[in-house]
Simulated scan of single mutants.
Amino acid sequence: MLQTKLIRSLMLALLSGLFFATSMVSIPVADRMANSYFSTAMQSATIAYATTRGLNAVVSVAKESRLELAPAGVGVSIAAGQLLDPIDDMTERLSSLLVAAIASLGIQKIGFAIASAIALKGIAAVLLIMIPLLWIKAPPSLMATAIKICLVLLLLRFMLPVTALISAAIYTGWLQPIMDDAVGKLGIVSASYHEISQLPPQQQQGFFSSMTSSAADSIDRIRQLFADLVAQAEGIITALLQLMTAWLAMFVIQVLLLPLAMLWLMAKVLNIAPRDILTANASANHRPAPPLRKR
């Protein structure tokens, strides 16, 4: 019995040292690809958010100018304003979705960094704690809890890079082309916000608020921006729908499907592994004595 405890203690100490040494080394391909995915996806989401906010600013200026055109009796301005309302609403909703996606990516990146730094070290520490538990005859439930903690940390260390790789494959192979195409279309319109922001303050308040001023070239430029925005309204709505659908799909995959799959796998492993290990140890330690032979 003493020899068995010594062997198990030695094995736990060796495993603890092995896990601690392994924690200093990154997984060659998975960690690098996961870091690259988080950086690329966050950069893409940030660009999409900036483009969407720029488009929202252009639409807001256009809607303000519509109110000033209405007293002139021009019915086209009313129709243009009604056309810009869904664009304004979609940009607001898309902005909220992109903020949630950026926050989700940031949380996953932080979780990945923490798991990479402490998961294997935590396993090494738990294995060392299990050594005295062998000698004080700790209850099986305490040993099962230690085993579960090790399994959870091990799954976190390897499952987070795996989920990041799955997300990266879906992102680069399916969603990124759709996102880049939509952002390119919206960027043409949102770039005009920079041109509007360079105008004097009295001209930024409305497209035709300075009709009596001498800055005819600025007014003509704003008029052309307004006309382009109205003419491209259908394409803008299509691009917004594409971008919203792509990021919504990415958000559902990252926040719902992959985490739920990881939790399901953890539940399966935790429900089976510790119980089987303890059952095997108990059966090994409590084997029935062989029957005595009759003389």
Results as ranks from 00 to 15, higher is better:
Lys5His: 09
Arg8Asn: 10
Met11Trp: 08
Leu18Ser: 12
Phe19Arg: 02
Ser26Asp: 13
Ile27Trp: 14
Ile27His: 09
Asp31Thr: 11
Thr40Ile: 05
Thr40Met: 07
Ala41Gln: 05
Ala41Asn: 02
Tyr49Phe: 10
Thr51His: 02
Thr52Gly: 02
Ala57Trp: 04
Glu64Thr: 09
Val74Ile: 10
Val76Ile: 09
Ser77Arg: 03
Gly81Gln: 10
Leu83Ser: 11
Leu84Tyr: 02
Ile87Ser: 04
Asp89Gln: 10
Leu94Ser: 05
Val99Ser: 08
Ala100Leu: 06
Lys109Gln: 15
Lys109Asn: 13
Ala119Ser: 15
Ile123Leu: 01
Ile123Trp: 03
Ile123Met: 08
Ala124Arg: 00
Ile136Asp: 01
Ala138Asp: 06
Leu155Gln: 13
Met159Gly: 15
Ser167Ala: 15
Gly173Ala: 09
Asp180Leu: 15
Ala182Pro: 06
Gly187Met: 07
Ala191Thr: 09
His194Cys: 08
Leu199Trp: 08
Pro200Lys: 07
Pro201Tyr: 07
Gln202Lys: 12
Gln205Gly: 13
Ser209Val: 13
Ser210Leu: 06
Ser213Trp: 05
Ile219Leu: 14
Arg221Tyr: 10
Leu225Val: 09
Leu225Ile: 15
Phe226His: 14
Ala227Met: 05
Ile237Ser: 11
Leu243Phe: 04
Leu243Cys: 06
Ala246Arg: 04
Met250Gly: 13
Gln254Val: 06
Leu256Gly: 10
Leu258Asp: 02
Leu263Ala: 14
Leu265Ser: 05
Ile272Asp: 11
Leu278Ala: 03
Thr279Ser: 14
Ala280Asn: 10
Ala282Gln: 12
Ala282Gly: 07
